[in-house]
């Protein structure tokens, strides 16, 4: 990215002014990308589906309290404390639902513009491809956060409505107050949202490869499923720690006393690695390709 900035900078002599312009330009672009993403009926529908999921889980758990240990994660905790519905919903949504929506948004970000023919107009504006890509990436990350919060908040509301709140028993058997537990829920939501960063970068890269939005979305979502299947083969033990989904569910380690950070940090490091690799690949591809549509 610095190379591109350098390339831009050599052309324009006034360096400081140019830099502020870059920031302002990026923010303007980011804001327009954000509105573009969140104004879409599709995005709202996706968020709506994500929001409906915890309600469904909550009602099912409330109606059917089956045998111990059966059902989704933390099922034994949910009936004791509604706050745990947040973690159950996130654990259910993280393997499939969240990446699906993120794949749609990230996969469509460039390819969708290309297929509707709006990409060339975007590039006519003096925005710069790097900046446009950065804005698209940041907007997709914002969607990750919104999607995670949509799940978490409706889960919290549903949990509060259907189950008792109060003292929260952690996975290590320790009990903490509700306020501290809410903070942890926020932390967990942040970690879950960050877990999707690697996928966003992959989706963005795939999106720069094709001019078809549907193809990019399908590829991204397919990759998520493929990688999760690979993660289940014991024979692939050696490569599994490097699969971006491998440590997704490690967020539950934050629900212990003391918090067990090893896997969470490993997860975040892995996401950073994927962002670096696929972000730079997307940049290399997008800044050098022919935009014909």
């Amino acid at each position: 990215m610095s190379q591109a900035e350098a390339g831009v900078l050599t052309v324009v002599p006034q360096l400081p002014q140019r830099r502020t312009q870059t920031t302002v330009g990026f923010l303007a672009l980011f804001r327009s990308e954000l509105t573009l993403t969140f104004r879409r009926a599709r995005t709202i529908a996706l968020l709506g589906i994500l929001a409906a999921l915890p309600v469904l889980i909550g009602v099912v758990v409330k109606v059917e309290t089956g045998g111990p240990g059966e059902g989704p994660a933390f099922i034994a905790q949910v009936s004791q404390n509604g706050l745990f519905l947040v973690f159950t919903a996130l654990a259910v949504a993280l393997p499939v639902f969240l990446p699906m929506t993120v794949g749609v948004v990230a996969g469509d970000s460039i390819a969708g513009e290309a297929s509707t023919g709006t990409l060339r107009y975007l590039l006519v504006a003096p925005a710069g491809r790097t900046r446009l890509l950065a804005a698209k990436f940041t907007a997709a990350l914002a969607f990750c956060l919104a999607a995670t919060l949509a799940v978490a908040l409706t889960a919290l509301l549903t949990g509060a409505a259907l189950f008792p709140l109060g003292q929260v028993t952690l996975l290590s058997g320790d009990t903490i107050g509700l306020a501290a537990a809410l903070l942890r829920a926020l932390l967990v939501a942040g970690v879950v949202a960050a877990s999707l960063a690697g996928l966003v970068a992959i989706g963005l890269f795939v999106s720069t490869l094709t001019g078809s939005g549907i193809a990019a979305m399908a590829t991204t979502v397919g990759l998520v499923l493929l990688v999760q299947i690979l993660d289940t083969f014991p024979q692939l033990h050696a490569i599994q720690p490097f699969l971006f989904t491998h440590q997704w569910l490690s967020f539950s380690d934050l629900l212990r006393q003391p918090m067990h950070w090893d896997n969470v940090l490993q997860n975040l490091g892995l996401q950073a690695l994927y962002v670096a690799v696929f972000g730079s690949a997307a940049w290399a591809r997008f800044t050098s390709r022919d935009i014909t549509a």
Partner: peptide, 15 residues
């Protein structure tokens, strides 16, 4: 990757 250098897009400052 198709990198024939046939880019029609010339952006300001970054051809």
């Amino acid at each position: 990757m198709p990198t024939e250098g046939l880019d029609v897009m010339v952006e300001q400052g970054a051809p």
